[in-house]
């Protein structure tokens, strides 16, 4: 029986918290290189799906396949090493680090410095110093790409919300993910910042070839950049399709776009 190779797919994913089905038999396929969005009202279970993918929650049942491997049960750091990076709805930055250092943590899995070489470097040519220099150069490119130079050496804790969101995006990019999970990246941004964000997300898709899973409440943004959209409510899938199809679906209109 020939199995078709799939980049990323979820089958029958379910998880409940104390009787509440937060995610109820959700499944979808994400094409490599595409932007796949998940929409749904507050509490629909979107973030919970992300938490299952990144290994923070263990689902009750279902499968999550990434590059032909079921990743359920793997530790979050192992999943990161496979090439899945994410941002968080409620910012999870390292607040007492600078922007540069936050992004450098994104290079963690690519760097080699261990405890001995890290503790004993003493000149430019030392192994740890070379490692730092090389990866700082890489991170600098991301800082330039996302226009974060002004925040480069600042502690991120005190920066504006929109900037922090971007730094999270930058940190995730620093990991060089194959699959990038963005949980409401535009929340708290003004329309100008959102415009830039759309531009960057498309850039990340086109130039870097990263596949993107996106959760968003901003319908214009969603319709603009998604290749496919999954709508869920109360943990259950309502419908999946192209932006044009989803926009027309009566239940989506009712559940989600009703107010407009």
């Amino acid at each position: 029986m020939p199995t078709t190779y799939q980049f990323f797919n979820i089958e029958n994913l379910s998880i409940s918290f104390g009787g509440l089905m937060a995610v109820d038999k959700v499944g979808f396929v994400v094409e490599q290189g595409s932007i796949f969005s998940i929409i749904g009202p507050n509490g629909a279970g979107k973030t919970t799906i992300f938490n299952c993918i990144s290994g923070l929650y263990r689902p009750d049942s279902g499968k999550i396949n990434f590059s032909g491997e079921d990743i359920i049960g793997l530790k979050p750091h192992t999943i990161a090493r496979l090439g899945i990076a994410r941002t968080f709805q409620n910012i999870e930055l390292f607040s007492r680090m600078t922007t540069m250092e936050n992004l450098m943590l994104g290079r963690h899995i690519h760097m080699k410095t261990g405890i001995w070489s890290g503790a004993t470097f003493y000149r430019r040519g030392s192994r740890a110093a070379q490692d730092e220099i090389k990866h700082r150069e890489h991170v600098e490119e991301i800082i330039d790409l996302l226009d974060l130079q002004a925040a480069r050496n600042q502690f991120v804790g005190g920066l504006p919300y929109g900037t922090q969101k971007l730094i999270e995006l930058g940190r995730a990019l620093a990991l060089e993910p194959k699959l990038l999970l963005l949980d409401e990246p535009s929340a708290g941004m003004n329309s100008e910042e959102k415009q830039d964000l759309i531009f960057w997300i498309k850039d990340i898709q086109d130039e870097l070839g990263v596949t993107i899973l996106l959760i968003e409440h901003d319908m214009k943004l969603i319709m603009d950049i998604s290749d496919r959209i999954l709508a869920i409510n109360f943990g259950k899938p309502i419908m999946e399709g192209t932006p044009a199809e989803v926009q027309k679906h009566p239940e989506v209109l009712k559940a989600y776009l009703g107010e407009d």
């Binding site: 979050p76 007492r96 680090m97 261990g114 890290g118 990991l175």
Partner: peptide, 28 residues
């Protein structure tokens, strides 16, 4: 030196947000 390089950064990351650290590949 240790705190300026990779291992120290992982320590600090755990302090500031352990879930972000582990989802970025730091083995807690």
């Amino acid at each position: 030196n240790l705190m300026k390089t990779r291992v120290g950064r992982a320590f600090i990351a755990i302090r500031d947000s352990d879930i972000a650290a582990e989802t970025m590949g730091v083995n807690l």
